[in-house]
Design a protein around this nucleic acid. Structure first.
Length: 885
DNA sequence: CACGTCACG
DNA sequence: ACGTACGTGACGTGA
């Protein structure tokens, strides 16, 4: 089969479009020497590398649209009438994309009066006839109509590097119709983005149903008169002409008068020399480097840097320099609180020093340089560096540039804790940890320590190279104070919280584990008895069979893989069988036992403490996250789970736990940024906000008339508003009809017109700017705000509404944490800030300090940021975290 | 390694 | 007609 011919056809326009929006957030970072944007070019080429490797085509062609008018616009003048104009930043890249494709040995082609689809359709049929396997790459699902046993259509999903492969079987599975029926479906349902109508009120679902019954549109219309009288029938008859026209428009012409022959499109491979010149012109460093190392292992091919041993002599030089120096402290394990340092590197005044001998950390000169806050340093991941050095008895201060933090602030998606990956995102070709050390069982430190040392020096060099550019971008985005005053100082606070750790009594957890195990046993036996068989209750699959097949309970919801057995489903089945409540109980206890009672014990270290890791550069909103273990989701809502908090204690028996939380920060933030007068008034007057909302949306005169149920619904509505509300979501949440929910929302917006205005404005802002931001200028890019796909676009809109709220609340508590840490130091308190749970800080402190904290902490928290409404803080204390409520 | 489920704000 | 609340992490199951 070695001579099997393979034809690759790419829809140039739709893939370029996809490529452009996939990298829209870095639009301004990708500019060639002569000022032309290159983001789509870059993404297209990335995709091409992957495709060529996967497909190994013998023949290839990329088809483009020739212009606005085609045989379709002749048939229907408004074809693609509402399609947004191609952005000029993409327009200027299209000729470059064609040029690059030609340099990569791939022919491009366009034909007057025809679309790229028609060229692809025609060639794919010719290829098939010639016995070739054909693969089509496109961003447009319409092309799936071309699928046959020989022709696979791969549609880009999530940007351009991933595709979904459509074979006739996959089309059948996904849509329930054959590829040939797709044009009938399109005819019936029309196409919004190409702007041609189908039959009114007929969408994908209805169209597929009709086709399953009648086969084709022609078959359907032969029998339309026999249909029962219905709205659907009326619409079908009224829109018959439109439907047939739309079918024609949707049909790809597989007999276009193309002039290229299969023999003309043989894949030539790269034109090395000219391609290198082209990449240089575009400043595509990573592609250039890839070409050089194409033949061998990346590891061996890593360029060599000149470096000396980081020894006492080097340390002396480093310590005496007053220049900014770059430090790499390398560890390899999963968890930097446990894994050892395997090497260090320093760049100093243009010289590189590296070592794998950690005894350098005992050198007095080196130690004092590390600790000296006046000696300026660059690093990648300050928090991790502080924590690692701390375990070797070294203090670490003086960082001005943390490349990880900056890359995250510039784009929350560029948040990988691996310098290699971040460097790659900036177009530099540094291997990431998987590439350098190997993956899974193959992971190992290189035998030749020089190889490792060289790698660490490379890291230091990349940090230096990217510093100016990244800091300038931060300034351009008006994010320098977010970095200088919040994230960088916070990394030091978080390091100290992680290092201190929280004391957890293993014995207490063990005791709970035993009692839970006993109860689980009892419930388990009862369930088996009731069900009449033994099975694995923890397996949703087995449980589904027992509940819905053996016990024949009604199916409420299905998941992709089978019956849903989630809580909301089981709640509805409670009165149908006693086994349901038992399963709910079993689930609850089993969760608490495995995740917390048993799970947490594994993380208690020699010092009786748990040292979590706060991820500072992960979330898309600016919140922290906590891993290994997650200490931000310790149970509280149900008392059985809440008991777990009794194991969290202060480090000395006569100390106490102290906690303080913001009350309704997110709603207060919303009142502030929306400027809504009614909501602001409620907070200024310190009303019960949910009761106040209830009074307003139910049209009452006073909050005295608000019933608990009204308050509950108003509270849910307030939450919904913060999340970017939909009537369906709200109706599900509080168990009312969708109509009622819609009415609620309407009332809400009438009562809080400023909130309505904010929701509209922020979505508009996102559409115009491609991102939204918080009060401290934290950014989140939302490329999907332009998505064609309804669900994606709606999701982006809700995110646009929610992110400034959730993100500004995150900004506020971060400021409070930094200020609090400083106060503790200034006032010489022994209290330790240990945990943060999004709107709450948890401390341990000597009993005598509790009265001080009760005043100090709320005042620091409510004055962290000045808003148009007051911030409110509540605090509590007790012998364990359980009692500090 | 993906999925379903469920713990938190 | 579409398919839904926003943000997280960890566990057990089963391909």
């Amino acid at each position: 089969m070695a001579d099997k011919k393979k034809l690759l056809l790419i829809d140039g326009n739709s893939v370029s479009f996809r490529a452009f929006f996939a990298m829209h957030n870095v639009l301004d970072k990708f500019i060639s020497g002569d000022g032309i944007h290159t983001n789509a070019l870059y993404a297209f080429n990335n995709m091409l590398d992957i495709i060529l490797k996967d497909e190994k085509p013998t023949h290839a062609l990329v088809a483009f649209d020739a212009g606005k008018t085609t045989f379709r616009t002749e048939m229907f003048s408004d074809y693609k009438g509402t399609r947004a104009k191609t952005p000029p930043e993409l327009m200027e890249q299209l000729p470059l994309i064609q040029e690059m494709l030609n340099l990569r040995g791939i022919k491009t082609y366009e034909l007057k009066n025809y679309e790229a689809d028609d060229i692809i359709g025609t060639l794919s049929r010719e290829g098939e006839k010639d016995g070739m396997d054909v693969t089509i790459i496109t961003g447009d699902r319409d092309l799936t109509q071309l699928t046959t046993d020989k022709v696979t259509v791969k549609v880009n999903i999530k940007g351009v590097t991933e595709t979904e492969a459509y074979t006739p079987t996959h089309v059948k599975e996904k849509l329930g119709i054959t590829p040939e029926q797709i044009i009938d479906m399109k005819g019936l349902m029309g196409d919004n983005s190409d702007h041609y109508p189908g039959v009114e009120k007929v969408g994908e679902k209805t169209a597929i149903k009709l086709l399953n019954e009648y086969g084709t549109m022609e078959g359907l219309y032969e029998h339309v008169d026999e249909m029962k009288k219905s709205k659907l029938k009326e619409h079908l008859i009224n829109d018959k002409d439109q439907a047939f026209l739309s079918k024609k428009l949707a049909t790809i012409n597989c007999e276009a008068p193309i002039e290229v022959k299969l023999a003309d499109v043989e894949y030539q491979g790269d034109n090395q020399e000219q391609l290198i010149q082209f990449y240089q012109k575009m400043s595509f460093n990573s592609f250039l480097e890839k070409m050089d190392v194409d033949t061998g292992e990346t590891q061996a091919e890593l360029p060599e840097i000149k470096f000396a041993e980081l020894d006492a002599e080097a340390a002396k030089k480093i310590a005496s320099s007053n220049k900014t120096q770059t430090l790499i402290v390398e560890s390899l394990g999963e968890n930097y609180h446990i894994s050892p340092i395997i090497g260090l590197a320093v760049e100093s005044e243009g010289n590189f020093y590296a070592t794998t001998d950690v005894t350098i950390l005992e050198d007095a000169n080196f130690k004092s340089w590390l600790a000296d806050g006046k000696k300026e340093k660059y690093v990648f991941d300050n928090k991790k560096t502080i924590a690692l050095l701390n375990r070797y008895g070294c203090e670490f201060n003086g960082v001005s540039f943390d490349m990880l933090l900056v890359s995250y602030l510039l784009d929350t998606n560029n948040n990988k804790t691996d310098i290699g990956i971040v460097a790659q995102n900036y177009g530099h070709n540094l291997p990431n940890a998987d590439e350098f050390y190997g993956k899974g069982t193959k992971r190992a430190i290189p035998e030749d320590e020089k190889v490792l040392m060289n790698f660490l020096c490379q890291k230091a060099q990349i940090i230096n190279e990217l510093h100016d550019k990244m800091m300038q971008e931060l300034k351009d985005n008006d994010q320098d104070s977010l970095y200088d005053e919040i994230e960088l100082p916070l990394s030091i606070v978080l390091a100290s919280m992680e290092i201190k750790g929280v004391t957890v009594e293993a014995a207490k957890l063990k005791e709970m584990e035993n009692s839970f195990a006993e109860r689980l046993n009892t419930i388990e036996q009862k369930i088996y008895q009731e069900a009449g068989e033994e099975f694995n209750i923890n397996s949703p699959k087995q449980l589904g069979v027992v509940l819905f097949e053996d016990l024949k309970l009604p199916v409420i919801k299905k998941t992709k893989t089978g019956y849903s057995t989630a809580v909301d489903v089981l709640e509805k089945l409670k009165d149908k069988s006693p086994v349901v409540q038992m399963i709910l109980d079993y689930r609850q206890i089993s969760k608490i036992n495995s995740t917390y009672a048993i799970g947490l014990q594994k993380f208690i270290q020699q010092d009786n403490k748990i040292h979590t890791i706060y991820q500072q550069t992960l979330t898309q909103t600016g919140r922290l996250s906590s891993i290994d273990p997650n200490l931000q989701n310790i149970p509280i809502r149900i008392d059985e789970g809440r008991q777990i908090r009794k194991a969290f204690v202060p480090k000395h028996p006569d100390w106490e736990m102290f906690s303080a939380d913001y009350s309704q920060v997110e709603l207060r933030v919303l009142a502030h940024i929306s400027g809504d007068e009614n909501m602001q008034e409620a907070f200024k007057e310190d009303y019960d906000i949910h009761a106040h909302t209830a009074m307003r949306i139910f049209g009452l005169d006073t909050t005295d008339d608000v019933t608990p149920d009204m308050r509950r619904k108003a509270k849910a509505t307030n939450f919904g508003i913060v999340y970017g509300i939909s009537d369906y979501g709200l109706s599900q949440n509080i168990g009312i009809t969708r109509k009622e929910a819609a009415q609620f929302i309407e009332n809400y917006f009438e009562q809080y017109p400023g909130v309505k205005q904010y929701m509209d404005d922020i979505v508009k802002f996102a559409r115009e700017n491609g991102y939204v931001e918080t009060i401290m200028h934290r950014r989140r890019y939302l490329p999907d705000i332009h998505a064609k796909n309804f669900a994606l676009r709606n999701f982006a809109q809700r995110t646009a509404m929610n992110t400034p709220i959730q993100g500004s609340a995150a900004d506020i508590i971060k400021v409070a944490m930094i200020n609090m840490q400083k106060k503790i130091k200034d006032e010489n308190l022994q209290a330790n800030l240990l945990l943060q749970v999004h709107d709450e800080m948890i401390f341990e402190a000597p009993k005598e300090e509790i009265p001080i904290l009760e005043k100090l902490v709320p005042s620091v928290m409510d004055s962290a940021v000045k808003l148009d409404v007051p911030l409110k803080v509540e605090s509590a204390h007790g012998k364990t975290w359980y009692e500090a409520k």
